[in-house]
Write a protein that binds this DNA or RNA. Sequence first.
DNA 1: AAAGCTTTTGACACCGGTTTCCTTTTTCGC
DNA 2: GCGAAAAAGGAAACCGGTGTCAAAAGCTTT
Lengths: 339, 339
Amino acid sequence: MPKSNKTPTINDVARLAGVSKKTVSRVINRSALLSEDTRTKVEEVIAKLGYVPNPQARALALRRNFLLGLLHDNPNAQTVLKVQEGVLDAIRDTEFALVVRPVDRHSPTLLEDIRRFLELQRLYGVLILPPISENDALAELCLEMGCGYVRLGSAMLDDEEHIVASNDREMVQEAVKYLIDLGHRRIALIEGPEGFRSALERREGFLAAMEAHGLPVPPEARAQGTYRFESGLEAASRLLDAPERPTAIFASNDEMAAGAFHAARQRDLKIPEDLSIIGFDDSPVAAHIWPPLTTVGWPVREMGRAAALKLIAPGEEAAQAFRFPARLVQRQSVGPPKG
Amino acid sequence: MPKSNKTPTINDVARLAGVSKKTVSRVINRSALLSEDTRTKVEEVIAKLGYVPNPQARALALRRNFLLGLLHDNPNAQTVLKVQEGVLDAIRDTEFALVVRPVDRHSPTLLEDIRRFLELQRLYGVLILPPISENDALAELCLEMGCGYVRLGSAMLDDEEHIVASNDREMVQEAVKYLIDLGHRRIALIEGPEGFRSALERREGFLAAMEAHGLPVPPEARAQGTYRFESGLEAASRLLDAPERPTAIFASNDEMAAGAFHAARQRDLKIPEDLSIIGFDDSPVAAHIWPPLTTVGWPVREMGRAAALKLIAPGEEAAQAFRFPARLVQRQSVGPPKG
DNA sequence: AAAGCTTTTGACACCGGTTTCCTTTTTCGC
DNA sequence: GCGAAAAAGGAAACCGGTGTCAAAAGCTTT
């Protein structure tokens, strides 16, 4: 008789159903070699007892657990959370769970820390978010430790089975083309920081669009930021104080675009009448500043879901997807140039 | 001889060190009853092999695992992430890991879903974020399932050992007093949604401050929102169109405050000259709108850390803390009333 | 040197599942 | 109705740790 007030084990089920543990195990794992009779009998007992297999015991016996990890260095809160939701979409109704692990990109012991983490937790696989997803040594570490991994990024950083990528370059190109089509000619760029693949992709997209239309990009129409608000403010200040003021700015992310808003406001420039601004990310701040920011959004949640599926069900169709289109979210920070 | 290319187990260590498993186990667990000699000998082998105990096996033997859960219904991305960081602060250098589990507050099967989650994962304990932390049935469920829990909230929803709370009421009271001291008399309130404890606390704080100074709060000086941006815009619109326009607004969160900014802008009201606004949360948007929003911030990260410590090291001093002071973050959306 | 403690160590069962391998039962062709 | 193959189910070992308890070793004490 199963002791009451304790969670039932496979032994309790077996005893009550009058079968062996192994048979119960077969029922749990939907093994084919089972008579309908025993199956239903065991299932009834399972239901009656409210038996749920112990995940730790299962993990031990199977020599693999059901934990997915999320490695990130807070690219921005909304993104991290959306990815988490996407992963949850993928693992809903499975036995997997999601373990989060924020890291510090600048820590000199980054790799060591992550190695310890992986050793300690023995995860089934990890998802790596940008910007640390761009770290190849990290991917190698996962391989070496026998831990599955999928990187999220803005370009094809890895094989199809290890990457879920947006297409920043193409989308920025389109966004800038949109500005050009509206009549803008002097368009400035606020770049992201050195060493970020996303910054590079967005810059290349920008330059490609300008070149395709034969528009020059003088040095004073480019400024570099750190992806942070303040840096956007500074960069935009420099751009707007140039002798030939741009009529439009593409900022490599929304936070810097918000900074550019402030710079414009300080100079009494009206958006979008005097200055059009496009950002990138479609973060919450984009919708909450005034006027609402036109920006490029990528399907973060879907990408998170796809990444998780790549790890836990690589066979499935949805897990094959590796390239996701971003799209232009038109709001009110863009208009035709004045005059 | 330990087979190469496989992660070493306790047996490998025992064999190589010429001792029993149990002795190795003692070394791992820092048991006191061990001679210095054997300890160093075993430790050397552990280091040489790079042995790390298997967490699943440990969990099984100890009948408890080392997983903390975070249950939340995205109050706002920044908050969730800060709590995650706080928890990580607490569990750094321990064997604990953090499992996240977003839920849908409005799902009719909320409790059932969480029950299944808890059954399936057998977590050591969970942290529950507002607003679902206000759900008493959920806390009972945890108790019933033998899962430790700590609620984060804006008031004392539970015993000291189960709660980490800010003190919204008091802080709002102070914030409103600050407005009053600046000379404001017609101060309006944008409330949060019905049924949120935080909304109630903040409203009570507001009303208490007003009453303490003998200021009336007519119905047209109160409007209710949903904590979302759009609702703040609508609520503020109503408030600002009242015959006796308020000179200041307290919004129960930053998103709604941002909405109020837009409403003011639509009416050509200058902030803070024509209208002062105070928000609550100190979310990123507060710093990125123009002018930067004066708001009330609570120490989310520290609270997350304290909550985690309550679960994993209830004895420690830092785990005793259960009440955290919020503080007024002064930026530029508040000034004395005109005239 | 033997007895009596205390300290250190190991043998073995156990946690709750899965796997391997073997036995029993059923089905089926002839 | 019989033998063989297939299907169903069980016994025991195993995954990699920890708990119990007793044995061994070391140290006093008489």
